[in-house]
Design a protein around this nucleic acid. Structure first.
Lengths: 245, 245
DNA sequence: CGTGACATTGATCTCGCTCAAGCTTGGTGG
DNA sequence: CCACCAAGCTTGAGCGAGATCAATGTCACG
């Protein structure tokens, strides 16, 4: 569709996402552009990182979706978290880190290695905020699986995707592309595919969402969010505010 | 230096835990001793950190147990993770961090503020490893809640406690003190207290564990672990090995 | 015009929840 | 020293959300 990515007119998901986490200066932009120039493609189902294997280089997910997966001995599979365009993977302040989970591409995926820490203070901050977000999403995943019923899990996850894709500039008109099968969703939600299907139908009948092709549109994200008690994610004190006081 | 708490004879849980994560030099020990000198006590149920509130200072849990908790609008409660003696709380590389979860003391608790990052390289490494562990335990919690049944969840959590308390030197003879009520466990496991009770009875009948008073003893941790497919946690490449090669 | 991946539907089962009641125990005050 | 009481543990009966098993439908693609 889009061939030459003209960063000025149409900023990439990474740039949009990281900019919304921390303001990026020109140096940071240059580093990201340079990194993105060495992007490469992965096929769906391809492993990007293997549990127990050393992490050679942190990655940036430029395009496509991936998932952190844990598999039990008998084959049960749990998607620990979803990785969306613009997400940063495996940046760690730990030397010689070893991956604690397997990461597989859910779709065709375009990645590049992330500019290393220390090269740009603005970028380092963005990484730190990004990691704080990741952790918050993990906490959300825990409470989803531990204390929500099937309907709530589905809507809560979709709202999280809505929020996260929004940061990357991938939401338009309360709608966004979700290249997931119902089976993949069930692995993320700790449910069976059959039950996910039925609950989705119920949600459609209740006119909470539409899901045609690969695009989901939420009828009323604000209302749904407040019903679930979701609050906007905040990981840093607002310095502007506190400085002004 | 070594008067009241005789670190040589009986190292504290923090020192034992952090030492097993990264070898601490004399400077790191001194920093920890100094920090521990300013310890203070908290009562059970007291909030140590509130969701959405700024984190003033990272803490070290010297004694007692705490929990990161998420509460839904209608009161459902999920314990996201358990915090054990020796655990480090809220160390973040992010400036002006805001807590993404509430932390409450489960027992009487003794804490002190953690020596800041940058003061000791050895300590910084220990912090980094500690944080990597925390993340791994979160992943484990997600797969527990998402894909394990009640029996498996209970044993898996107990094995994690066994492993973690072992690092802090708090396991003796396959037994360890667990100051949890069954209700608290149920909040960590995403189950009801009634069901936790029944599954515990089943586990006792199957002679997998004993739980008398506050002390749990696992009959055969190694066998239980292999049945669940648990593998020892590893977050760093073994430098000794790679360096030797 | 197969063929394979995914969505949908139905029937049945079961694990874990709910509600409700006893039971045990340790602490507290009279 | 005992009576009492609140927490927590145990037990029972019944129910229901979600799992399981097994087809069938649909659609894109070679």
């Amino acid at each position: 569709m889009i061939n030459a990515p003209r960063l000025v007119d149409e900023p990439s998901s990474v740039v949009r996402r990281l900019s919304s986490l921390a303001s990026l200066d020109a140096a940071a932009h240059d580093l990201l552009d340079a990194a993105a120039a060495d992007a490469y493609l992965l096929r769906p189902r391809q492993e990007m990182l293997s549990e127990g294997r050393a992490v050679d280089t942190p990655l940036i997910l430029l395009d496509g979706w991936a998932a952190r997966v844990r598999v039990l001995v008998d084959g049960r599979r749990q998607i620990v978290s979803l990785l969306l365009p613009g997400d940063v993977i495996g940046v760690s302040e730990l030397p010689d880190p070893v991956s604690t989970s397997t990461i597989i591409a859910l779709t065709a995926v375009r990645v590049c290695s992330a500019p290393p820490c220390g090269a740009s203070p603005a970028l380092d901050l963005a990484y730190a905020v990004s990691r704080a977000h990741d952790e918050a999403y993990l906490l959300a995943q825990v409470t989803r699986l531990g204390r929500m019923n099937a309907q709530e899990r589905i809507m809560d996850l979709l709202l999280e995707l809505y929020e996260r894709l929004g940061l990357a500039g991938l939401v338009r008109d309360r709608g966004f592309d979700v290249p997931l099968t119902q089976e993949t969703m069930s692995d993320a939600l700790g449910l069976t595919p059959v039950h996910v299907n039925r609950m989705l139908q119920a949600a459609r009948k209740a006119e909470e969402l539409t899901w045609t092709g690969k695009r989901i549109t939420l009828a009323n994200p604000v209302r749904s969010a407040s019903e679930l008690g979701r609050v906007p994610l905040r990981v840093r004190a607002d310095i502007a505010k506190t400085a002004a006081a």
